[in-house]
């Protein structure tokens, strides 16, 4: 059985009489102790997918349709109360910008304790002991000293490790990491990825790793989902994806990256730009930029098709 099963998820925003479909028919599943990479460019709906799973979509946005089954429970039908137990308890979340995710006026130790005290019903003293352990686990040499520090006294990478500490504090079975390294330097980035990798290996935790950086997913994820304009265009195992991507968009993304590393004189770029969600083209959302576009691509949107071996692709070529 899968740990998380998302089926036909639709999240839309309703503004000024317009409907903007930020997540459109997205399905994927994450099995136990698997790392799933959710990849796409800005505005493609990857963060919105994560927020929908956590039921954190704010109005005017709303989950219109779909099913999110986590540990056998349909999250979309739970009461707000029950959902609060899941968030932070069974599902941890790590955000992109560690400075804005931490409260600047509380000591970082207290902020980790807070999660423990809410979900694990422990008193302050007990929580403190656990937090010191956690701080060690996320790689701090002097956990007692760190406990009493404020977010501004820490560097970006250290703050991110505090957030990771909060996310894993209650022993969640799933952690959603939303671009956790995007605001960091290369060197710090590699440390954080290392840390996350260790945590996943050691604790049989699953992870949804949201990023726009394909290189990271290659090192870190087992399976990968490519999103574009609110849709999932391809799902694949990382090994197969990097060997032979299926969707033309995936091919374009990969050649942009490989091109930079190779000896060619110019890059093969994907022409055009990402469409706005409010003015999507008819047919396949990618057809105006697609080198393989056929007449049918302009008319009707392809459905996502299972290719076997855990591969899915939304394209008429298959």
């Amino acid at each position: 059985m899968q740990l998380l099963d998302v089926t036909d998820l639709n999240t839309s925003f309703f503004a000024d009489g317009n409907v903007i479909r930020a997540v459109d028919g997205v399905s994927f599943s994450v099995s136990k102790s698997e790392t799933f990479g959710l990849v796409g460019e800005s505005g493609c709906g990857k963060t919105m997918t994560a927020l929908s799973v956590m039921r954190l979509v704010q109005p005017p946005g709303r989950i219109v349709k779909g099913q999110v089954v986590f540990e056998g429970k349909d999250l979309l039908s739970l009461s707000e109360r029950e959902m609060e137990k899941i968030r932070g308890g069974r599902i941890g979340m790590i955000f992109q910008e560690p400075m804005s995710a931490l409260n600047p006026v509380f000591r970082v130790g207290e902020q980790i304790s807070e999660a423990l005290m809410i979900h694990k019903d422990v008193d302050k003293k007990e929580a403190r002991g656990r937090v010191i352990e956690l701080l060690k686990q996320v790689g701090f040499d002097e956990p007692e000293k760190r406990y009493t520090q404020y977010p501004h006294q820490l560097s970006g990478g250290q703050r991110q490790r505090i957030l990771i500490g909060i996310a894993i504090s209650c022993g969640p079975s799933l952690v959603i990491a939303d671009e956790p390294t995007t605001a960091l330097d290369v060197a710090t980035e590699s440390q954080i990825i290392n840390l996350l990798q260790d945590l996943v290996n050691d604790s049989a935790m699953s992870m949804i790793f949201i990023t726009h950086n394909l290189n990271i997913t290659r090192k870190f994820c087992r399976r990968i989902g490519i999103m574009y304009a609110g849709r999932m265009l391809e799902q694949n195992s990382v090994d197969d994806f990097f060997k032979e991507p299926l969707h033309p968009y995936s091919k374009g993304l990969l050649s942009s990256i490989y091109g930079l590393m190779g000896d060619q004189k110019r890059l093969t770029a994907i022409p055009g730009s990402v469409p706005k969600l409010a003015e999507l083209p008819q047919g396949c959302t990618f057809h105006p930029r697609c080198p393989y576009a056929m007449p049918v691509c302009r008319e009707e949107e392809p459905i996502i098709k299972e290719m076997g071996k855990g591969q899915w692709v939304r394209c008429y070529l298959y």
Partner: peptide, 14 residues
């Protein structure tokens, strides 16, 4: 810039 746009701009610089 996004990956797909980044390569366009890199080409422009070249």
């Amino acid at each position: 810039l996004d990956v797909s746009i980044q390569s366009q701009i890199v080409n422009l610089f070249l």
